[in-house]
Computed example of a mutant assay.
Amino acid sequence: MADKAILHVHNHDGLPRVEVGAHSFMCIGAKPPFDHPHVFLTFGDEHEKVCPYCSTLYVYNEALGEHGASPGESVWAGEDAA
């Protein structure tokens, strides 16, 4: 059983870039039902990563913390999210 939740991020608004504070996260594309297969991405030694499904450019920003993103609305909280 995992000891912490993995950050899930979307780019529903089609922004040119989304910043995330976690080294590893899930990209879901757009909000359901328009999401793509949820893909696990990790920065490794890099500070930028492009999602292979939706081509969103993700940029690592340590200041956001493990569960943060900018814009903040890009964090997906699950089916109960508004």
Rank of each mutant, 00 (worst) to 15 (best):
Asp35Cys: 05
His36Glu: 09
Asn11Lys: 01
Gly29Glu: 02
Cys27Pro: 01
Asn11Cys: 01
Ala22Pro: 03
Pro37His: 05
Phe25Pro: 02
His8Lys: 14
Ala30Tyr: 11
Val9Ser: 02
Gly14Pro: 01
Val9Trp: 02
Ile6Asp: 14
Ile28Gly: 02
Val9Lys: 05
His36Gly: 12
Ile6His: 11
Cys27Val: 03
Phe34Thr: 12
Ala30Asp: 06
Gly29Asp: 00
Leu15Asp: 04
Cys27Met: 00
Leu15Lys: 03
Lys31Phe: 14
Asn11Phe: 10
Leu7Asp: 08
Met26Asp: 09
His10Ile: 09
Pro16Val: 00
Pro32Arg: 08
Gly21Arg: 07
Phe34Ala: 15
His23Ile: 10
Leu7Asn: 12
His12Pro: 11
Pro33Gly: 09
Val39Ser: 06
Ser24Trp: 05
Glu19Trp: 08
Leu7Cys: 03
Lys31Val: 10
Phe34His: 13
His23Asn: 14
Val18Thr: 04
His12Ile: 10
Phe34Asp: 13
His38Ser: 04
Met26Phe: 14
Val20Tyr: 01
His8Trp: 12
Phe25Asp: 02
Gly29Val: 01
Asn11Gln: 02
Pro33His: 05
Asp13Pro: 07
His38Cys: 10
Phe34Leu: 13
His38Gln: 09
Val9His: 01
Asp13Glu: 12
Gly29Phe: 01
Pro37Phe: 03
Phe34Met: 10
Phe25Thr: 09
Leu7Phe: 06
His12Phe: 04
Val18Ala: 09
Asp35His: 12
His23Thr: 08
Val20Gln: 04
Leu15Asn: 07
Pro32Gly: 01
Ile6Pro: 11
Ala30Ile: 06
His10Leu: 08
Pro16Ser: 04
Leu15Met: 05
Arg17Asp: 15
Val20Asn: 05
His12Met: 09
His36Ile: 13
Leu15Gly: 00
Ile6Met: 11
Val9Glu: 02
His8Val: 12
Ser24Asp: 12
His8Thr: 15
Arg17Phe: 15
Asp13Lys: 15
Pro37Cys: 07
Pro32Ile: 00
Pro32Lys: 11
Asp35Gly: 07
Phe34Pro: 08
Met26Lys: 15
Gly21Tyr: 04
His8Ser: 15
Asn11Thr: 00
Val18His: 00
Gly29Thr: 00
His10Arg: 06
Asp13Met: 11
His36Gln: 11
Gly21Ala: 10
Pro37Tyr: 06
Pro33Asp: 00
His38Leu: 03
Gly14Phe: 09
His8Asn: 13
Ala30His: 10
His10Asn: 11
Lys31Asn: 10
Phe25Ser: 03
Arg17Thr: 07
Val9Asn: 05
Asp35Ala: 06
Val20His: 01
His36Thr: 10
Gly29Pro: 02
Pro16Thr: 00
His10Cys: 15
His36Leu: 11
Lys31Leu: 15
Ser24Gln: 12
Ala30Gln: 12
Glu19Tyr: 14
His36Lys: 08
Ala22Ile: 05
Ile28Glu: 01
Leu15Ile: 01
Gly29Met: 03
Arg17Glu: 14
His38Phe: 06
Cys27Ala: 04
Ile28Cys: 04
His36Asp: 08
Pro37Met: 03
Gly29Ala: 02
Gly29Arg: 10
Ile6Ser: 14
Ile6Phe: 06
Asp13His: 14
Val18Glu: 03
Ile28His: 07
Pro37Gly: 01
Asp35Ser: 13
Val20Met: 07
Ala30Pro: 05
His12Tyr: 13
